[in-house]
Design a protein around this nucleic acid. Sequence first.
DNA 1: GTCTATATCCAGATAGAC
DNA 2: GTCTATCTGGATATAGAC
Lengths: 210, 210
Amino acid sequence: MPYLLRPEPDPMPMDCRILTAALELFVNKGYHNVSVHDVQKHAKVSIGSIYNHFGGKQGIARALYDRLLQEMNQMVDSVISQKLSIIEKCNSIIKLWFEYTESHSDIIAFMLHAKHNEFITDQPPICSAEPFRKIRELVQDGIDNGEIRACDCLIAASVIFGGAYRMISLRLDGLVDRPLPEYYDQLIDATWQSIRTSVECSTPRLASNS
Amino acid sequence: MPYLLRPEPDPMPMDCRILTAALELFVNKGYHNVSVHDVQKHAKVSIGSIYNHFGGKQGIARALYDRLLQEMNQMVDSVISQKLSIIEKCNSIIKLWFEYTESHSDIIAFMLHAKHNEFITDQPPICSAEPFRKIRELVQDGIDNGEIRACDCLIAASVIFGGAYRMISLRLDGLVDRPLPEYYDQLIDATWQSIRTSVECSTPRLASNS
DNA sequence: GTCTATATCCAGATAGAC
DNA sequence: GTCTATCTGGATATAGAC
């Protein structure tokens, strides 16, 4: 459960108040459309406190990103350490993401949807960060132990998690109107079985002219 | 072939010069990190011309978005009108996207990667725009005619195109270091066959505790 | 550590000559 | 239609009292 939005210790510490307010504003309006004054008003603190704690607007974004990435890392670790098959671990991560998308959509939107390197300078892309590296390693393990079709690891990971990413994206954009967990079973089936109806012949390719 | 970057009529018309320069800057630095003066310098026109043609910075973004969306729409139309199976049409779109990602990465980055509603006001999400609607209709047709597994259309579309989206995203972020078309065959196989090695038993689900 | 008031800068937009 | 010079608002950041 993410600390940021954990049931407030009452009074919620000031840095959490600031980060929580900033997260909501960044996600709803976009980082560059939010001023420090907006955050200050929404968090009901003074602008001085913000500069004291985070040194500025980018400092807020960086702290937010670091903390949430750490939480996502812990989430991945906890799934990986369970006694499950590789496929079950992948599914478990998807399931948790789906649940988070409903209960903490701001966090998912900020982590999976935002373009961090547009506002946090010198930030490597999130897909190269630790939790995502671990997920790819997980997929590679599945290939090595024979659970997952032998192919390039990046392709396998993209196929396995790409559908879920896409559903999350569509949900955040308002095109999916029911909670994502309701789609979980169907998505898992379509992903791991075959999206085609019959597998008797090989996959149709394109005609040579295209 | 996109008009925007078509071999220049020499002299390239001023509006194209402006849009081409803006596209490159927006993609590389992010819309909000680009000033009208940057565009003006990069396109080698005066700031007055920009305001004459597009009315301002947002006007540039809107014109860019509209034109590229129209081109994408034409691309989808041309694929749909071909005499191919539904599955082949889907693959054809993926193949074209992969080729565009290599030859016109700016366009793909701007259309598939950017968050337009953060800088173009009142812009509905791109996934609800015409070409993407048509792709979902295509998938629905495939479900209706039995080519594609019977399931929710959004899920089917997400599974079919989600892997390709993800590969594009990873390529743009620098994690994939070979041209995408080289991955096309493997991706198509993994998507349409099954990503699992064996299909003899049903998909493993999660244990009940998760 | 927290606050208010203020300074500084720069981006978007405009005016008006040519 | 195109250009240069200028205006203005608003954002980040700081100073200094409490």
